[in-house]
């Protein structure tokens, strides 16, 4: 069973906007409210909207189960890798070794109220991105698994 044409058209129209907003929340996690988990949940909501609007056979041509599984595993691996990378430079596990270093995301910020810069905060944006990708894949694959267990002729 699938939803009516109005629901399907609305889902198609809203999907890219929800995706862009979720990725914005993930990428600006160290400047504005939100972060990896919140942004990933917003993106997964957009994926769930498409999953609910279509039937299982149509969804699997748009959203691949393998891709979602890969996103989840790669996100967790990047997150743990960012924690272990601190060991390689001699800092403790999960310490912020990129902050104030001048490298990637290594710019310092002045103290006090300021608008902020995207190129700051060390490993925090990398971890935000990793957790966001992981939550995206994880929550989407849960909804996809639940849809896959519906019998084909049911309702």
């Amino acid at each position: 069973m699938r939803m009516s044409k109005i629901v399907r058209t609305g889902a198609n129209l809203l999907y890219p906007f929800i995706l862009i907003f979720g990725l914005y929340v993930i990428m600006h996690g160290h400047l504005t409210p939100g972060g990896g988990f919140q942004g990933g949940a917003v993106v997964a909501t957009g994926v769930a909207l498409v999953i609910v609007a279509y039937s299982f056979e149509e969804v699997t041509s748009m959203i691949k189960k393998v891709g979602m599984k890969a996103r989840e595993s790669i996100g967790l691996l990047i997150f743990i890798g960012a924690g272990i990378g601190a060991l390689a430079v001699g800092a403790p596990f999960f310490s912020n070794f990129l902050a104030h270093s001048g490298l990637l995301f290594g710019q310092s910020i002045p103290s006090g109220p300021n608008p902020g810069d995207l190129n700051t905060a060390g490993v925090i944006p990398i971890m935000n991105l990793a957790v966001g990708i992981e939550v995206w894949g994880g929550l989407a694959i849960i909804v996809l698994y639940m849809l896959s267990s519906i019998p084909k002729e049911g309702s």
Binding site: G35, V42, T45, V143, I150, S155
Partner: peptide
């Protein structure tokens, strides 16, 4: 608490509703 508000809007209002709708689709309305 804008952080908690974003996660509540995404998880509570989005994903939980989607899971319930899928459950209704599999059973009776």
């Amino acid at each position: 608490a804008p952080d908690v508000a974003i996660s509540q809007a995404a998880i509570g209002a989005g994903l939980t509703t989607a899971i319930f709708i899928i459950t209704i689709r599999a059973t009776s309305r």
